[in-house]
Structure formats: C-alpha cells, structure tokens
Design a protein around this nucleic acid. Structure first.
Lengths: 194, 194
DNA sequence: GTCTATATTGTGATAGAC
DNA sequence: GTCTATCACAATATAGAC
C-alpha cells in the first residue's frame, strides 16, 4: 500500500556522504571509490543506486540550490520587514557570500561550469535566484548584473584572486550600493528617489 | 658571445602549439602527449624544455595576461581621447568581454582557480588590471567591484548559465552604468556631477 | 635533444555470482 | 543489493640509450 519513495533512504545516504566528502576533501576527493568507502560498501554497488557520477553530481547541485535558496529567501524576507529595497539587495548579497564561503566546494560544483538542467528539478534554479530578482525590483537585466557581480566577487574570493590587503567588504559595499541604486545612468526610466 | 635567450625558440614553439591546442580542443585536449604530437616530437621530450605541465600552464597564463592586457590598454587609451570616464569603463568592459569570448579556454585557464603568482612575471597581473583601475577613477574598491562584475558576466556567459532569451548586452550596460557612475550610494564622498 | 620503454597512479564503469 | 574481479582508458613523469 505504500507508494515507493522516489529516492530510497540509501540514495539519500549516498548523497549525504558525497556532500560531506566533497566539502571535506574537495572535488578530487570525491571519487566513486572513496564515496563507497565512506558509505561502507564497494564502489560497484554504488551503481545500483546511482546511474553515474554525473547523476550524483546533479543530486548534489540540487541540494546546493535548495540550501542556498533557503538562505537567500530568508534574507530577503527578513530584509523586507520595514527596510528599503537597497538594504534588501545588501542582505541577499551577504547571505549569498556567507553560504558560498561556508560551502566552497559545493558552491564551485554548482556554479563552475554548465548546468545539467535536464537533471535538476524544474523550477529549482529559478526559485533560488528569485530573491535577487525581487531585491533589484524586478528588472531582469539588473538582476543578472547583480548575480554576475555576486558570483564574480565570490569566486574570486574563493580562488584567492584578490590581493591580501584588499578590503572585500568595501568592494561588496561599493558594488551593491551601485547596483542596488535605481535610476542609475543605464536605466533612467525610473526617477531617482529624492 | 651571444647571451643565451631565457626561452629557446623551441619553448616558444611549444607554448604556441599548446595555446592553439587548448583553444581548439579545450582543457581536456591539452595533454602532454597530444602537445608533443602537435610539436612533432615524443611526449617525454617535452620535459627537456618544460619542467612540468604546471609550468607550461603558467607560461600560457602569462601569454593570456599579455594578450588581454594589450587590448584593455588599447581600449582605455582610445576611450580617453575626449570621452568621459563612464565611457572609458564601458570601453574596457567591451574589450574584456570581446577578448574572453574570442579565447574562452585561455580565459578559463587564466581566471578559473588560484594564480601561480610565483611563476608569473612580476607586475604582469597588475599591468593587465590597470585599465580597470584607471577607468573607475582610481578607487581600488570600485575597481574590484567592476572586475568582479566583468568576470562574473563573462564566465556565466561562457558557461551558458544565462537563459537563452537573456539580453546580455543590456545586463552589461546596466552593470557598467551603475558601477561607472561616481557618487553612488555606497561612496558619497565625491559629489555627483550636475 | 630526441628516442624507446616503462613506472605509477588514477579514473568511471560493467559482468556475473550470490 | 552486495560482492569479487576486471575492463578500458588516461594521465604525468622518469630512466637510460643514442
């Protein structure tokens, strides 16, 4: 009488171990052999639960989208309680950076390279990005600018591309301040406040 | 009586073939075997000229910095002839994007991951970035914002992360317009023009 | 400076017994 | 669903002859 769950508890366990392994040892540490060892079985047995490593990675990406998305939604929900739109973008940016720095390898896996969209739950990617769109007021071009800025800042920080003395908080503030400001030179359609 | 050149013609030839191989077939195509084949020798012979693959990659990165830097410097030199500072940033952004799209794999190699700075000519990285600093008026925080934005837009475009219907020109314009605008909310120290 | 031969290490994945 | 055994493949790099 029970409907079979789409993903068995075993698969959930495998994905869970894979995530921990990835975060602990980086992408080179995530091999099917080591994953099997972490789960407590032999490598070939993994393939009874997961079609391929690429499918496993897609499951990890979905996890990442859900985790990061939850924090971004939380950030904008908190920010909208009586604060301005500019502050909302700052809050979302902070949450974005915080999540990425807390899960660097998962972030890299999910954002570094093309997305296997056909293997991800429909709508998940859009749901994760939604807070950014809301925070900039709905303009898709501005949303893409902001998302590119956030990703650029984040990945450059993760890759240690900034000089050691760089003030990254200041760079974030400068970028968010500029991008969150409606009525910038590029989009004079809406009158600036004041 | 001749002073030995630091890098032999053979090394130059190897780096040249490596660059073409990388651009033609991507990072997985750049193996020591295939590179040797392209040069016309056997793989082990490469190691008489190049210490390791990582050293070879550092040479490729230096090439990339020089190539991209030349275009960025050209862009800002052209732009400063009688145009405004905002236009200068737009010109540099255009040159940045153009160079990256023309050399996607070289761009990825050079910007994706930590830099082996100890293997790069001193000052080369800073020279390449200089036009961005100049274009934003010298503020290092704004320069880092702009550089992060440009890198984010570029790598997301290369990785096909934007929806097919996204207007990337518009996103670039929105971002450059906002970041190139002095006196944004984040940095009110300079009075806005007008 | 080039060669042949090889070391060493790793990967993802499959067949088929139980 | 797990196992043993193994395939098929690729990589960087070194030794030592010429």
């Amino acid at each position: 009488m029970l409907v079979a769950p789409e993903r068995s508890a075993r698969v959930a366990e495998i994905v869970d171990e894979a995530r921990e392994l990835l975060e602990r040892e980086g992408p080179e540490g995530l091999t099917m052999r080591r994953l099997a060892e972490a789960v407590g079985i032999r490598a070939p047995s993994l393939y009874k639960h997961v079609q391929s490593k690429e499918h496993l990675e897609a499951l990890l990406m979905a996890e990442a989208f859900r985790g990061m998305g939850a924090e971004l939604h939380e950030a904008i929900t908190g920010a909208r309680k009586g604060r301005s739109a500019t502050t909302a973008l700052a809050e979302v940016g902070r949450a974005y950076r915080r999540w990425a720095l807390a899960h660097p390898h998962l972030y890299r896996l999910t954002t570094g390279g093309p997305l296997p969209r056909e293997r991800l739950p429909e709508g998940l990617e859009a749901w994760t990005a939604e807070p950014v769109v809301v925070a900039v007021g709905g303009d898709p071009d501005r949303a893409r600018s902001a998302w590119a800025f956030a990703h650029g800042m984040t990945i450059l920080e993760l890759d240690d591309r900034f000089p050691p003395d760089a003030d990254l908080d200041a760079a974030w503030t400068a970028g968010i301040g500029a991008l969150g400001e409606p009525g910038g030179r590029a989009r004079p359609s809406r009158p600036a406040r004041g």
